[in-house]
């Protein structure tokens, strides 16, 4: 493994670590001291150099190990990657978007040479070289969406647009916050969001859907979501809940700083040109509480968010049983001083 990438695990001995650089660029998702649902979408335009927004698809120190973890999840359960038959064109759109973006943004790691439909793709970190015919799935080892998302961090869903709705009809989902692609595939926008508490009544999904139906090619948008995970486990799937559920019961005041992780999803939305579908990458970033509290503003704010969140949301996000433990750990880092608005450290 090259020096650019960590050799680490997201299961078993959990050797996942964030370097000092990774902590500094961590996408802390709370712009204020409290949290409630909002649509909170903004244009996905390039951000500061070094930030997770610098490029269309962020490739970080966890890349190679994350892809190894995904391959293991898929070997254990191939249903984590599914595409309904009419979604292959959207898969090609996604493959093109990712290959073009990565080759442009990280030319030292990725190259793409196009000669008409004859494409030549090189992924140096994963030691992949592939010549294939664009739009001919028989020239790839698997479907286009699976092929490219086995080489890209984050979960992906593809939404077909018809009848004034969005339909989740393809996806690669191995780093999810407790939802099942196998169960949800084929659902409309409001159907797959049905289990989310409070937000329907607030009209959040009406507004979000209306906005997304008008999303234009060339103008992607982004938003954050977040939850909590014990241990740096990427695959918190409902499928494997009996395997990872018990980990929530074994945290102690001594281990909470090391084991409790804030899980941030950087969600971006892209209109795909050939299929008119929408690609929805859900990129997961994990940070332990002990790393998080090294930034004083984040520590203060994290304490206030956990303290004030409605129980309904803490239950839905799966951390209600450890809420007291988390607050006990965070409270000493909250001196009551005001925090400045926005995401950035003070």
């Amino acid at each position: 493994m090259s020096l650019d990438f960590n050799d680490e695990t997201f299961r078993g001995d959990f050797t996942y670590r964030n370097s000092a650089r990774a902590i500094k660029r961590f996408p802390f998702p709370f712009p204020e001291d409290s949290y409630m649902y909002s649509v909170n979408m903004e244009p996905h335009v390039p951000g500061p150099v070094g930030s997770v927004f610098e490029h269309m698809f962020d490739v970080d120190e966890h890349y190679v190990s994350e892809m190894r973890d995904r391959a293991q999840v898929l070997a254990d359960d191939p249903l984590r990657c599914q595409s309904l038959p009419h979604m292959e064109l959207a898969g090609w759109d996604l493959l093109e978007l990712i290959m073009e973006s990565k080759a442009r943004d990280y030319p030292h790691w990725f190259s793409l040479h196009r000669d008409g439909n004859q494409w030549h793709w090189i992924n140096r970190p994963l030691q992949i070289e592939q010549r294939f015919t664009f739009m001919d799935a028989s020239t790839l080892p698997c479907g286009p969406m699976e092929y490219i998302t086995r080489q890209t961090q984050g979960d992906f869903t593809l939404q077909d647009q018809r009848d004034d709705d969005l339909w989740i009809e393809a996806g690669m989902v191995t780093t999810q916050a407790d939802w099942s692609l196998d169960f949800d595939i084929g659902m409309s926008f409001k159907q797959w969001h049905a289990p989310v508490p409070l937000a329907h009544q607030a009209g959040i999904f009406d507004r979000a859907l209306k906005f997304l139906l008008k999303l234009q090619h060339g103008a992607p948008v982004r938003r954050f979501n977040w939850t909590m995970t014990v241990d740096p486990l990427l695959d918190t799937s409902p499928e494997n809940y009996p395997k990872w559920g018990p980990s929530k019961t074994t945290m102690t005041p001594e281990t909470v700083g090391r084991r409790q992780h804030l899980r941030v999803e950087l969600q971006t939305l892209h209109r795909l040109p050939r299929s008119n579908a929408i690609a929805f990458p859900i990129r997961c970033y994990l940070i332990s509480f002990q790393d998080l509290v090294t930034v004083p503003k984040w520590a203060r704010r994290m304490h206030r968010v956990v303290r004030d969140i409605p129980d309904e949301l803490a239950t839905y996000k799966g951390f209600i049983r450890n809420k007291a433990l988390m607050l006990d750990y965070l409270a000493p880092f909250d001196d009551g001083l005001p925090t400045s608005p926005g995401f950035a450290p003070e």
């Binding site: 009419h86 077909d160 018809r162 090619h217 040109p273 008119n276």
Partner: peptide
């Protein structure tokens, strides 16, 4: 303008 499709084929 960029292309916008309000009259797409139903892929199914």
């Amino acid at each position: 303008s960029q292309p916008v499709n309000l009259f797409p084929l139903d892929a199914r």
